[in-house]
């Protein structure tokens, strides 16, 4: 009965276009402005060591944000990524005795299992994503602490040390790993049926079912993938720090990842995934923190600025949706 009332028409197209423009490209503009500011006012910003440092530091958030972008694209959310990092880190330390390959495999597998639980709760039991993954956020961190007996473990392993700190052609290996992940995820989103299904489900789950999209399987896969990426971030973090500290690793990283995704222009309401935007969003938040710190503004200011940016980003999305 409402069919006649829903003919699409862009009211106030000018305003809408402006909001579109800001939402689509704001993150790149912000990033460029920030880089320009730093080149002008921050000493040694343009030096290779600093650039390298910024990239290395953004790696865990960037990897997790890529997985998060996929989940948000389906109109879901994954709060458990920080805990998954901790579990992976704990498992890595625990199984290092069997060699680095086995340890890494176990860590990734452990993460994937958490993702499987998330996915089953969401896609089979129909629990809201925020609730399902909240349970794993609470329980997962506890599990990581139990595995590690609550202790910080130092991790000495040549292979891991190489992963954590070596460079190939001056590019740190962790950055290369993140780039590889970004390329794979980018291809997944733009070139595969799976990627198409993700955004279809996020855009209209009911229509997707009727179009024969394997909704259940797709959701299950995306939560496993997101958790596996979080576990990878956990492994990388552990390798870089040469230590596994399950009570701290990945704390609040779900917030940074969600922020990167949202600031990057992927709407929380699902149906679209922006990979480049997500990477730019992660980098933007990283540079904001770095800029504030190098200009003697404390860490606390970083958080407050981030908070304002999150709200601004969702306000723009909201206005855009309403326009």
């Amino acid at each position: 009965m409402t069919a006649t009332e829903t003919a699409p028409a862009a009211q106030a197209p000018g305003r809408r276009r402006l909001l579109d423009l800001v939402a689509e490209n704001g993150v790149y503009v912000g990033l460029l402005l920030l880089i320009a500011f730093n080149l002008l006012f921050t000493r040694r910003f343009g030096e290779i060591d600093n650039i390298r440092l910024q990239f290395v530091q953004v790696v865990p958030v960037a990897i997790i944000a890529l997985g998060m972008a996929l989940v948000i694209g389906t109109r879901g959310i994954d709060l458990s990524v920080g805990s998954v990092m901790a579990i992976a880190s704990a498992l890595l330390a625990l199984y290092l005795g069997y060699g680095p390959v086995v340890a890494i495999a176990v860590a990734l597998l452990g993460g994937a299992v958490v993702g499987l639980v998330n996915g089953v709760l969401v896609s089979v039991a129909g629990v809201q994503p925020i609730v399902a993954t909240l349970a794993l956020l609470v329980g997962g961190r506890g599990l990581a602490l139990v595995l590690a007996r609550g202790r910080l473990t130092e991790v000495f392993d040549p292979t891991l040390a190489t992963i954590g700190s070596a460079r190939v052609f001056e590019v740190p290996i962790v950055v290369l790993i993140a780039l590889a992940v970004a390329v794979v995820i980018g291809i997944l989103v733009s070139r595969t049926t799976f990627g198409r299904y993700l955004v279809a489900i996020g855009g209209n789950a009911e229509a997707s079912v009727l179009a024969g999209v394997p909704v259940r399987r797709t959701l299950l896969t995306v939560y496993i993938l997101c958790a596996a990426l979080a576990a990878l971030a956990g492994v990388i973090q552990t390798a870089r720090l040469s230590a596994s500290d399950p009570s701290f690793v990945g704390n609040l990283i779900e917030l940074s990842a969600i922020t990167a995704v949202v600031v990057g222009g992927t709407p929380l309401s699902g149906g679209r995934i922006r990979i480049m935007g997500t990477l730019a969003g992660a980098m933007l938040m990283q540079l904001i923190a770095a800029t504030l710190i190098t200009h003697n503004l404390p860490d606390s200011a970083t958080r407050m600025v981030q908070a304002v940016i999150i709200v601004a980003a969702v306000l723009i999305q909201r206005q855009r949706g309403a326009a």
Partner: peptide, 30 residues
Amino acid sequence: RKAEGIIPTLSVRDNIVLAALPRLSQAGFT
């Protein structure tokens, strides 16, 4: 049409091929 049919965020192309994706792709690649 709106609630059960179209996926408004996707392009015309993606909406058209959605159901036929398995036939229009190889090993999961479109």
